[in-house]
Simulated scan of single mutants.
Amino acid sequence: MGREIKDIIIFKDNPWPEGHKITEFVWSGRIEPESGVWFDFHLETEDYYEGDEDYFKGDAEEEEEGDESNWKLIDWKSKITWGNYHSCILSSTYWEEEKGFLIGTKEDKLDFNRLVGKKIIVDPLETYNPEEPAFHIYLLGHDSAADHHIHFYRQISHDEFSISWKGKIAMSYLYDDEFDFSFEANISKAKFEGIFLPKELSVDEAYHLLSQFVKEPQRFQLTMKNDKPCFVLAG
């Protein structure tokens, strides 16, 4: 019987089909005055080999032999290779200036009352720009992630939602740009941290900016988080 894991990410066809525990998931928003409200995700996993008794006994399989053209699949299926990189970070905020995805504009305002059931596609393969990805990923080195399908499928409380997140992966750390692999993450209870604002705004300016991109701005309360002004959903 496998371990009971609440929030997991599965990398399809890697050596651990039951997936890996998500140890941290941060969901936040921010307002860019020229465009609108953006959502950011930050996800981290436990060590890939956590709970694998065979790995800790030194019984991880040797590298598979085969046609060199299958080097990607050989690495993908190797516990030894995965163990060299320890764990995964998939994030729009961890390495550099925020990326994320646009969720609310003046023409189509963010409506938390209609968030459940909403499905969003980010960086579809046909328009993916490797110079400006929505999310960066550290997996087997610094790889690439695209074709994200994000589904808010249940509301638990006023600021907590369940999220399904699927996407494609390219092993770009090894100079390959084909999105031959995939992931699927399930976050059963993601708390919305709030919508962060540019600094040095007056209260009136902050609410005016919020009202341009968000429906029912009265549902939000202005506070300070991480030394930044932030609108949080009031209970």
Rank of each mutant, 00 (worst) to 15 (best):
E126S: 14
N70I: 03
F135H: 00
I195A: 03
E24W: 04
S87K: 10
D75G: 01
N129F: 09
D159E: 09
E178F: 09
R3N: 04
I195P: 00
T93Y: 02
G66T: 03
D13C: 10
V116M: 02
P217M: 09
S188N: 15
L110V: 06
F196V: 00
Q218V: 13
K12H: 09
A134H: 08
P124G: 10
K215V: 13
M171E: 07
Q218I: 12
V232T: 13
D59C: 05
G141D: 08
Y138N: 10
L43W: 01
E44K: 14
W71M: 09
A206K: 01
L210Q: 08
E62T: 05
T105F: 07
V214M: 10
T93C: 07
W82C: 08
I10N: 02
H151N: 14
E64Q: 08
P217C: 07
Y94S: 09
T81D: 01
Q212A: 14
P33Q: 04
E132K: 09
H136Q: 14
E63H: 06
D108E: 15
F220M: 06
T45Y: 07
L90K: 02
D75P: 00
F181T: 01
A190M: 04
E53R: 11
A146G: 12
L201D: 11
D54G: 04
E53G: 03
L139R: 00
L139S: 06
K191I: 00
S202Y: 06
D75F: 03
E4I: 14
W27F: 10
G51K: 03
E44I: 06
I10K: 14
F25C: 07
I120T: 10
W95N: 10
N113C: 07
Y49S: 05
K79Q: 10
H208G: 12
K215M: 01
Q155M: 15
L233H: 02
I103L: 12
K109E: 06
E160Y: 04
E97Q: 12
E65D: 07
F25R: 02
M1R: 09
T93P: 05
K168C: 12
V26T: 04
H20A: 03
F220C: 03
D180A: 15
A234D: 10
F135W: 05
K215P: 01
G66H: 04
E4M: 14
E178H: 12
D13E: 14
D7N: 15
D52I: 02
L210S: 13
N70P: 01
F25A: 09
K168I: 04
V116H: 06
I22L: 13
W71S: 11
A234N: 14
H86S: 08
N84Y: 04
I103T: 05
S91Q: 03
I5C: 06
F161G: 02
H149W: 01
L197K: 08
T127E: 09
I22P: 00
T81M: 05
G66Y: 02
T23D: 08
G19E: 00
F41Y: 06
I121L: 15
W38P: 00
G58D: 02
K228H: 11
E4A: 13
M171Y: 06
K99R: 12
